[in-house]
Write a protein that binds this DNA or RNA. Structure first.
Length: 233
DNA sequence: TCATTAAATTGTT
DNA sequence: AACAATTTAATGA
């Protein structure tokens, strides 16, 4: 009983919403309105989801795939600020400030992105205390990540970089639906950490030997987020 | 369902 | 950066 490709896409979107902490905080009418306003876009691997300086369309959610938030410095080098796995919502900063995007958002693999239009986002903040409280928690969690990043800036070991990158992807507040087994290839992890795939491979083996995670074809299974987060080499 | 092939990923140099 | 080995995904009988 499928009516074109639209039906499965909506189903996938519904599932992502159901796994998002903010969704159940809305009442039925609000959910209906949000769902009607939401747009889904497919982005091919390597393509830009949203470029720095571009006007904000809205709040972004990863329905499927993996994106990174990065910035290119003047000398051409790229610094990755964060990776966002499926189930993660991001970009609220620029929407809140009503400014253009401050960072590049790039799909690391073929990804499906949900867009909640700016107006809908602001409407929710005005009308739903639950949503606003969720946003406060989200912003606080991000602040915590960046403070932790500064705190651990001195440790530059590749193993530690990989460990922290993985720990951040498993932050339960930012990405609640990330399962222990995350589909994430070593080259994708390399793009997130700024390390070569080979070095990521070595680091993963070392972390696996320590029992912090398990590797498998096309992904990693995290055994202990806490120990990964605390790893200092 | 199974066998074959292509593509992706890994491990090593 | 390049290579071989391995795993998965896709294809068609």
């Amino acid at each position: 009983m499928r009516i074109g490709p639209v039906q499965p896409v909506m189903q996938e979107l519904r599932q992502t919403l159901d796994e998002s902490d903010w969704w159940p905080r809305l009442d039925a009418d609000q959910q209906r309105r949000v769902l009607a306003a939401m747009v889904v876009r497919d982005i091919a691997a390597g393509r830009i989801v949203s470029a720095r300086g571009a006007p904000v369309e809205g709040w972004l959610g990863v329905v499927d795939g993996l994106v990174k938030i990065s910035i290119d410095s003047a000398d051409g080098r790229s610094v990755t600020l964060a990776g966002v796995p499926a189930g993660g919502w991001f970009g609220e900063g620029s929407v809140l400030k009503d400014e253009s995007r401050r960072y590049d958002v790039i799909a690391l693999r073929n990804s499906r992105i949900a867009v909640m239009p700016r107006q809908t986002f602001h409407w929710l903040i005005d009308i739903s205390p639950g949503f606003s409280r969720f946003l406060l928690g989200l912003l606080n969690a991000r602040l915590g990540q960046f403070i932790a990043a500064l705190e651990h800036q001195r440790m530059l070991g590749p193993e530690a970089r990989v460990a922290r990158c993985l720990a951040r992807l498993f932050d339960p507040q930012l990405y609640p639906s990330t399962r222990p087994r995350l589909r994430l290839s070593q080259s994708e992890l390399g793009l997130l950490t700024g390390l070569s795939r080979q070095r990521v491979n070595q680091a993963l083996r070392q972390l696996e030997a320590l029992g912090l995670l398990e590797t498998s074809y096309g992904g990693v299974t995290v055994v202990s987020v806490e120990r990964l987060d605390a790893f200092e080499g």
